[in-house]
């Protein structure tokens, strides 16, 4: 694989890797540094790429493992300390923006309260839009485990959303 092929086949996955790393480390700078490490690792081991069927899933698996290593080796701040991501919204009044941000923050809290595996599966499926097979590869799970975790995660989110809606009304 030459630089051009690397640019076309591997680099486009950068944002997915960043989001995965950010969700796991809770630190944007650390996540960026981690993505850089993933790419250098992939480049240095590019001879192995020929045997890799899904480069995207492979890169995400490396990113997940590196994030776990970093989390194990360092003392990280708890996720509750992280700064919320500011979501840009258009054509909305300041009141609506604040309300939307509050609602999104509620959803984020609901997601964070899910067991780690449930949350990881749901994030990979619903945010990164990975296929079930890709999720199996990234998280080293069986198809049955992925589907069970996804089902439980979505059910928990559904119940929390209904409760939230009831309390608002």
């Amino acid at each position: 694989m030459n630089t051009q092929e690397f640019q076309i086949q591997v680099l486009p996955v950068k944002d997915k890797l960043f989001r995965l790393a950010f969700r796991m480390t809770g630190n944007a700078l650390e996540a960026e540094d981690l993505v850089q490490e993933v790419f250098l690792k992939v480049w240095n081991g590019r001879m192995e790429l020929e045997s890799v069927q899904n480069i995207e899933a492979w890169c995400m698996r490396i990113a997940k493992n590196l994030a776990i290593d970093r989390l194990r080796s360092k003392h990280w701040q708890t996720r509750t300390d992280e700064e919320p991501i500011i979501v840009e919204t258009h054509e909305a009044s300041p009141y609506t923006i604040t309300e939307q941000q509050d609602t999104l923050e509620h959803i984020r809290q609901i997601m964070h309260q899910l067991p780690e595996k449930h949350r990881q599966v749901m994030e990979l499926r619903d945010i990164e839009e990975l296929s079930y097979e890709e999720i199996c590869e990234v998280l080293s799970m069986t198809m049955a485990q992925v589907k069970t975790n996804l089902h439980r995660a979505r059910q928990a989110v559904r119940e929390a959303l209904i409760k939230l809606n009831v309390s608002k009304n």
Partner: peptide, 21 residues
């Protein structure tokens, strides 16, 4: 009741690396 969930999922996809990366 379910709209915020799908809005959240879309908003999470907006996080990206800087162009210089």
């Amino acid at each position: 009741a379910f709209q915020p969930l799908f809005q959240f999922l879309e908003s999470e996809r907006e996080a990206s690396l800087s162009p210089s990366f």
